[in-house]
Design a protein around this nucleic acid. Structure first.
Length: 829
RNA sequence: GCGGGCGUGGCGGAACUGGCAGACGCGCUGGACUUAGGAUCCAGUGGGAUAUCAUCCCUUAAGGGUUCAAAUCCCUUCGCCCGCACCA
């Protein structure tokens, strides 16, 4: 006996699979496709347990579906542009490119030693010119369609990363990557008009039945649709000029006592010019604009405002109200101006109190009257309208409509829908990214680089000086360009690179035709493979990557390049890996790496443990003893095969199946049914594995009861084959080895998934529980298929039940076929 | 504050549409084999009571409700986790 030697066995079969090219996949219209995709990694350092978990989940699915006959696309690639490469390059004195490709090599090796069944011919690398050429091409597509534009804007700036960030990439006022506090800067930047797609991005969430509800909710919140009214307030001091304010509460219009505009509102300057307030207000504006949005609008930050000396006129009653500039009003949302209704908005109420602005009640709750003088907090709830002229008495909801209608008739406002979503800022002031393919010419302005000149290549030889890789603006040879329109040699190249999320917004399409040289992807191939049937990745991308990729797909759909409106049909957000109650991290010293596990127990054990310890969407607690348990199980399977495969091969033993054989077959077919359902319908790999364990326990029971000669080899063969086949998606190497022990020459990968035989699951007798008043008092074996009445009759026959029924009256008898009988009796107990 | 999720043995977790709570694994206890075992195999393992192969009671965060029957449905409370957070 050799014993189970995972290291040797895994290397052997990995080589065999590679040599026989089992994982390559081709478009085949005669077969049903299935696209399994795990979010591709950023290649920093080496793999951690989180990676191992996602890949294992995806690999089980891919292997399972292949055995079920699907044509399965299961690719892998590298999200290879990004800042860490630059930082690491500086530390190690190598170029970002070399650093990145070294890491890719390392990670690819690790993935291979995990036995992951990727089609490596389709590998994509976003930092490779063959790839980013098409990222640039897509940028130009967006540009042509009016979806990419450059504007001056107050944007989020991370001082540590020395680059701007999109809104989605700021968490609690801090950089999503380095957690430095973000500040606001005014810069000329490139944006993608994702807000044009806000409504469709919102609506189509309803199509995504296979997505977790919480992810859809997060996206809904992020898009932040709200219905309201835009109202025109003429300016008293500037006849013909007006301020527009967006409100969700037009019913409170008569309660307006002031207006506040954003510090960066385009009219601020004009409003205060020449007044005694000018200097003070402009100082305030300068101070505020340079603060981060967080420090302006954070919860604990006090709202401040300054009077501009000007007044706005309420369009419904002609009242003149002061106009202020306030730090909490955001130019980016609505119109950058808000109407102040202290009586019905708590924020306005506090602001009014602070600055001594009047309070005017216009909505009374149904049960009492409010007084403007003695209000202690705003009444934001429902009620009916008062102090609102001809609208008095209307319920507030109706009032919203009536006021809006009135304003529309008068030309003083209109119903409007607003979104919280803002355009996607994609410029990055860093080196290691895809250059934005644009040239600026003094005479021609902004000129896109012609498609045939793509890619705009990153300079290769990087001078590592100081503590930064120099931005592209430092490379004169890169900056100097010829204007594609007029041929002027004085033109300058755009030196910003693209947000890496651009690269990851379409990689799933590139996998469908990875080597195509004339387009980013072939529509024909994409039409066959798309959408991704099952996408798997971390919840941290609930808004970021998953929103951007949806946006890209919709734009490509509009451009006629894909025929799907959503890229990912089903999404699995896998849980995190913990150890000792905390996320694994170097600083906590609780890290276990995939390499540790592979070297110690083998990939099969690691895969099995990770899947067995917890359902995929839940967090997983790493347990060394749990790993031991998984390893013990594999050894148990291996021993079983070592000892009994010969019985199967020799075909010895008696032929007539008896009770033990029937029981064994039943447990085998139960397992087949359970494992199939658990993988296919629920992704509950943990219970699938426990079903395999139960089957193995039954097999041991069977063989241990018998001498070798008494074993029914046909029944045992069926059991051992089922064990190996069911185990093969989870622990493929040992399965391949065991398959050979059973006498097969072909790979287990080429076998079909077993089907359970319902006839075998049929039992003549079932155990039925007899309850008296809901408490189990007796169990009985009855013929399967017994009617309710017969079951109840049967229950009455039981002596123990008779005891319980003595001196009592049966009020009701309930029976569930094949399960239980419940007799409800009078009296206590 | 708003929105969402979760709470089951010593531990990870089962229980799919309400129908025997605790599958499977870990750990623990006892035993077998053994020079030895951290290998392997067998038995036991939610708590309590009566006392002996059996019976009874309690138990799914806490309390209440619906039901013949609740971990599962409803209400209240507590605790934990995640997302958003002056969005007008």
């Amino acid at each position: 006996m050799q014993g189970y030697n995972p290291q040797q066995l895994e290397a052997k079969w990995q080589k065999y699979w590679k040599d026989n090219d089992f994982d390559s996949v081709f478009k085949d219209n005669s077969r049903t496709k299935y696209y399994v995709l795990e979010m591709f990694p950023y290649p920093s350092g080496s793999l951690h347990m989180g990676h191992m978990r996602v890949y294992t989940i995806g690999d089980v699915l891919a292997r399972f579906l292949r055995m079920r006959g699907y044509n399965v696309l299961h690719p892998m690639g590298w999200d290879a542009f990004g800042l860490p490469a630059e930082n690491a390059a500086i530390e190690n004195g190598v170029s970002p490119r070399d650093w990145t490709f070294e890491n890719i090599k390392e990670i690819r090796q690790q993935q291979k030693s995990l036995g992951l069944s990727y089609d490596w011919n389709r590998e994509v690398t976003t930092c490779h010119p063959d790839y980013y050429r098409w990222t640039q091409w897509l940028f130009l597509l967006f540009y042509r369609r009016g979806l990419a534009y450059r504007r001056n804007a107050a944007i989020n700036w991370c001082p540590y990363c020395e680059t701007v960030l999109a809104n989605e990439q700021v968490e609690n006022g801090c950089c999503w990557r380095c957690e430095s506090e973000v500040v606001t800067k005014e810069l000329e930047q490139w944006f993608l008009r994702i807000t044009d797609y806000a409504e469709r991005l919102l609506q189509d969430l309803d199509l995504l039945e296979g997505w977790p509800e919480r992810v859809k909710i997060m996206q809904r919140n992020w898009i932040g649709k709200s219905y309201g009214t835009e109202i025109v307030f003429p300016l008293k001091e500037f006849p013909g000029s007006e301020l527009r304010a967006f409100t969700t509460r037009p019913d409170t219009l008569f309660g307006v006592t002031y207006m506040v505009i954003a510090p960066d509102h385009p009219m601020v300057n004009e409003l205060v010019k020449g007044t005694s307030y000018e200097k003070e207000v402009m100082d305030f504006v300068r101070r505020t604009v340079n603060e981060s949005e967080m420090s302006r609008t954070g919860e604990e930050v006090e709202k401040t405002g300054l009077f501009t000396g000007r007044h706005a006129i309420n369009p419904v009653n002609g009242e003149e109200v002061p106009v202020l500039v306030g730090n909490y009003v955001l130019m980016e949302y609505g119109t950058g101006a808000v109407m102040g209704v202290p009586a019905h908005d708590q924020r306005d109420f506090l602001f009014a109190q602070k600055y001594g602005l009047p309070v005017k009640v216009v909505i009374n709750p149904y049960d009492r009257d409010l007084s403007s003088d003695s209000l202690v907090e705003a009444h934001e709830g429902p009620g009916y309208m008062v102090n609102s002229a001809m609208f008095n008495g209307l319920d507030f909801e109706e009032g919203k409509n009536k006021i809006t209608e009135y304003l529309e008739q008068e030309g003083k406002g209109e119903a409007k829908t607003t979104y919280r979503l803002r355009d996607w800022l994609i410029s990055r002031q860093r080196y290691w990214g895809a250059p934005i393919p644009v040239i600026y010419c003094d005479s021609c302005g902004t000129v896109p680089v012609p498609e045939e000149e793509l890619p705009v290549t990153l300079p290769e030889n990087v001078e590592l000086a100081g503590d930064r890789v120099p931005a592209l603006s430092q490379y004169n040879s890169f900056v100097q360009a010829e204007c594609p329109a007029c041929g002027s040699k004085e033109a300058k190249r755009e030196t910003d690179t693209m947000d890496t999320f651009m690269c990851s917004s379409w990689y799933f399409l590139r996998y469908t035709s990875p080597d195509l040289e004339k387009a980013p992807f072939s529509s024909e191939d994409a039409d066959y493979w798309m959408p991704v049937d099952q996408y798997i990745g971390g919840i941290e991308h609930a808004v970021l990557h998953l929103l951007y990729a949806r946006f890209f797909t919709k734009v490509l759909y509009d451009a006629g390049m894909v025929n799907v409106v959503e890229p990912f049909s089903r999404l699995l957000a896998q849980g995190m890996v913990y150890k000792d109650g905390a996320k694994m991290s170097k600083s906590k010293g609780n890290v276990v790496t995939p390499n540790d596990i592979i070297n110690h127990y083998g990939a099969d054990t690691g895969r099995l443990f990770i899947l067995f310890a917890s359902p995929p969407e839940k967090d997983l607690e790493w347990s060394e003893q749990g790993v031991e348990g998984a390893h013990r199980f594999l050894k148990r399977v291996y021993r079983l095969l070592e000892e009994y495969a010969s019985v199967v091969r020799e075909g010895s033993g008696k032929k007539q199946p008896e009770r033990e054989e029937k029981e064994l077959r039943r447990s085998v077919h139960t397992a087949i049914k359970k494992v199939t359902g658990d993988i296919e319908e629920r992704f509950n790999f943990n219970t699938a594995i426990s079903a395999i364990m139960e089957m193995v326990n039954s097999i041991y029971e069977y063989v241990q009861e018998k001498e070798h000669g008494e074993i029914n080899s046909r029944v045992l063969q069926e059991a051992l084959e089922a064990t190996v086949l069911l185990l093969s998606p989870f622990s493929p190497h040992i399965a391949e080895e065991c398959w050979r022990m059973l006498g097969y020459d072909n790979s287990v990968l080429l076998s079909s998934w077993p089907e359970h035989d319902p006839a075998v699951l049929q039992v003549e007798e079932v155990e039925v529980v007899v309850q008296v008043n809901g408490k189990v008092r007796e169990k009985m074996m009855v013929p399967a298929g017994l009617s309710r009445e017969e079951m109840i009759d049967e229950a009455y026959q039981k002596e123990r039940i008779q005891q319980y029924l003595k001196d009592r009256e049966v009020i009701k008898a309930v029976a569930v076929p094949g399960k239980l009988v419940n007799l409800v009796v009078s009296g206590d107990n």
